[in-house]
Design a protein around this nucleic acid. Structure first.
Lengths: 244, 244
DNA sequence: GCTTATTATTGGCGTATTGCCACTTAATTG
DNA sequence: CAATTAAGTGGCAATACGCCAATAATAAGC
């Protein structure tokens, strides 16, 4: 859109001030080849032109009925996925995160199953999946390294007491695939029997037949998918035992 | 009205251009007579004049270096408490929450010990502690009933796996007082022995002598206060057993 | 077809944690 | 000094977890 910083600054001065100066940024995670990946976009404009950053942008007051809708719109634009897991992580606002001054962004975390044929990636030339460990070594735009880190931390912690990792898998999946997703997202290994006991005690999955995972060997496994309405359910016990 | 151009420009900037249209609202909770209370303020201006609402307001770009500072400033203005527990709950933005159109607010939750003499309440004529159950039956301004409910829910859930209830007590306190705070904030009863085992296993409190709570009877109790740096520590086990 | 390799699933047992409840200890009250 | 109140502990059954080995069911190689 702009070819020089000077041109950008000129435009910025006459910017329309009616929109609330709140942006939405989304850390979209998936699992690819067993590794956590994150979707980054290359900035086409100043400031920070050419740097990789989280997909995001401003609220469209006509289109978006709420912040969640803004995040969902941005995510869908980049990935084509219509029903991801999408949750707010935090809202960061301070004087230092943007050279232009006080700036506020609502950070969301999105989880989607990887689409092997990656149809949608073709539609956005500037977007690319990065292995998480490589992504955080990039020199990301603005304070996006901190946003990415916060979202990753939320993902890690919440994977400890919810079924979040379910949302980076294509259903149906086997318990072993699910365990590997948990392990990658948690960053620790889990003992097989303990994992299965806890997942099954939580009663958040339903069996949908059996089969072998793509190109797999060995004994056929039971296949599962998340039960409807199991979205945010914790499966760790707090005080007072099991709730009803 | 303005004596220098500089002063004028500064004023112009603040009000017509550079202010992010983001407000901050705070649900401040405390424990009074064993019951959860929330601090509400009576609105002195339109819209919603005369209704009770959460304390809050806009970012002061000169004073506040970040959103947390804005929330802390608002909280201190109303309560005088300088070192509360303060955390962000969520950010709500949509077209319906304010009759004036698209509106975004960052919701914070603050926890403070009740000040029995309530010095600070005198300083703000419009602020008052309400028992939580009564507060939510008021006809609160804007969508504040939903904000209050969200903050309450965060408080409830997080009290299940952290020591949050510590922050509504004046230290030092007895384990029984702490248990009663947990029970009120969780909304469930806790078995005494289980509670003590878990709290002590978590090792987040330090003993600071013994005594009787104000006007108490019976055997003297050990008194505790939170250890430094124990703020956000969970004390429930997740996968993989105890972390180090 | 038969053996080997690979993966899924279950069994079993020692240990840690929790729920439950009664008992002991130490203070106040009258 | 007895009765009352509240703190703190003991003990045990039930549950959950970590560990590891046994069994089951498939593919791959010969």
């Amino acid at each position: 859109m702009f070819t020089t910083e000077k041109e950008y600054l000129k435009h910025y001065n006459v910017h329309d001030y009616d929109v609330p100066l709140v942006s939405v940024d989304i850390a979209i995670f998936t699992l690819l080849d067993g590794k956590l990946h994150i979707l980054l976009v290359e900035r086409g404009d100043f400031p920070e032109k050419g740097r990789w950053s989280l997909p995001g942008g401003f609220i469209n007051q006509q289109q978006d009925k709420d912040l969640h809708a803004t995040a969902l719109r941005k995510l869908t634009e980049k990935t084509g996925v219509k029903t991801p897991h999408l949750e707010q992580v935090a809202t960061i606002g301070n004087t230092k995160r943007d050279p232009r001054g006080w700036s506020v962004t609502a950070l969301y975390m999105g989880l989607i199953p990887y689409a092997p044929t990656a149809d949608f990636i073709e539609t956005v030339a500037d977007a690319r999946w990065w292995p998480y460990e490589i992504a955080i070594k990039q020199n990301l735009a603005f304070d996006h390294i901190e946003l990415v880190t916060q979202a990753r931390e939320r993902l890690r912690v919440k994977s400890g007491y919810t079924v979040l990792p379910v949302y980076v898998l294509n259903a149906p999946f086997t318990l072993t695939q699910l365990q590997q997703a948990f392990e990658e997202l948690l960053g620790t290994e889990i003992e097989k029997k303990s994992f299965r006991r806890r997942i099954q005690a939580a009663d958040l999955l339903e069996e949908v037949g059996e089969g072998l995972p793509e190109g797999g060997r060995g004994r056929i496994a039971a296949l599962y998918r998340p039960k409807k309405g199991s979205e945010q359910h914790a499966f760790l016990r707090a005080f007072g035992g099991v709730e009803d």
